[in-house]
């Protein structure tokens, strides 16, 4: 069993007017087997949290700590974090022309596991996961994310989640831009990932609709760069009815 511990995390970005603080003291602990939903209005810093955990160079951690099973995550490079078991499903996956999906998946799997996957089982695993996510076979030979539709990109992120089997997955607005069928396919993928109870998920979303398919154990309302309220799944129901008006009003 693992845990991801975020303590008093402060994060800034460089702007033309100097550094601007986006995260203002985030405290959050995720254990294996738990799904946490982070919900909040636009501009509340949800995506900043996701990218800071993954180590995007645009974000500077000014104070606080992030530990994965006691190891200092902030001290690790981007690729070290991934190899330590962190995964970020991105809101806007990046196009990399000329690198095929199959080559990319195999390279990533080899990097994460420290050895090349056994060819026969790997091909079978990839095929099976692709079928589960209703991804066409021809997809494997396409250039990474290049010319993918929004829905294809999101399904491809979940395909990686299933194949790379990280300890903790951060899903950054994976539901945005998906129609109802795609949302169900993607949610089923996340539920397969967590089915054994040994994975942790941080589900970042603006809307409550994905929570009909993925049941969170905890819901955190994120406003003004930190957690404003915490609760169980019932908190999501409240947000569904009332939106973020209370919180945004309070922070203004």
């Amino acid at each position: 069993m693992s845990n991801l511990e975020i303590r008093d995390l402060h994060v800034s970005v460089e702007t033309e007017a100097g550094p601007k603080e986006i995260l203002r003291g985030v405290d959050l602990t995720i254990e294996s087997g738990q799904t946490h939903a982070i919900m909040g209005p636009n501009g509340s810093g949800k995506s900043t949290l996701a990218y800071s955990l993954a180590g995007h160079p645009k974000y500077t951690v000014t104070s606080g700590s992030v530990r994965l099973d006691g190891e200092d995550v902030l001290d690790m490079t981007v690729d070290e974090r991934a190899r330590a078991g962190l995964f970020l499903a991105m809101q806007y996956p990046v196009e990399v022309p000329g690198v095929s999906v199959s080559n990319f998946l195999r390279t990533a799997k080899t990097a994460i596991d420290g050895e090349a996957p056994k060819l026969r089982t790997w091909v079978k695993d990839v095929k099976e996961s692709m079928q589960n996510l209703a991804i066409d076979d021809a997809f494997a030979e396409r250039d990474l994310n290049t010319g993918f539709s929004g829905g294809e990109k999101k399904r491809h992120e979940i395909l990686q989640l299933e194949l790379l089997q990280p300890k903790f997955a951060v899903l950054d607005e994976t539901d945005s831009g998906l129609d109802i069928d795609a949302l169900r396919i993607v949610s089923d993928g996340v539920n397969r990932f967590t089915a054994n109870g040994d994975k942790g998920v941080l589900l970042i979303t603006h809307y409550t609709r994905i929570l009909r398919y993925i049941k969170p154990d905890f819901v955190h309302v994120f406003v003004g760069g930190k957690i404003a309220e915490e609760g169980g799944p019932e908190l999501a129901d409240k947000l569904e009815e009332q939106g973020y008006v209370d919180y945004v009003g309070a922070s203004a």
């Binding site: 993954a54 180590g55 995007h56 160079p57 490079t77 981007v78 690729d79 974090r81 991934a82 190899r83 995964f87 970020l88 991105m90 996956p93 990046v94 196009e95 990399v96 990319f104 390279t107 990533a108 990097a111 994460i112 990686q160 790379l164």
Partner: peptide, 14 residues
Amino acid sequence: DEQLFYLQARGIPP
């Protein structure tokens, strides 16, 4: 940089 970040975020060394 975004391409490099994406690949590194999947464990691939720089």
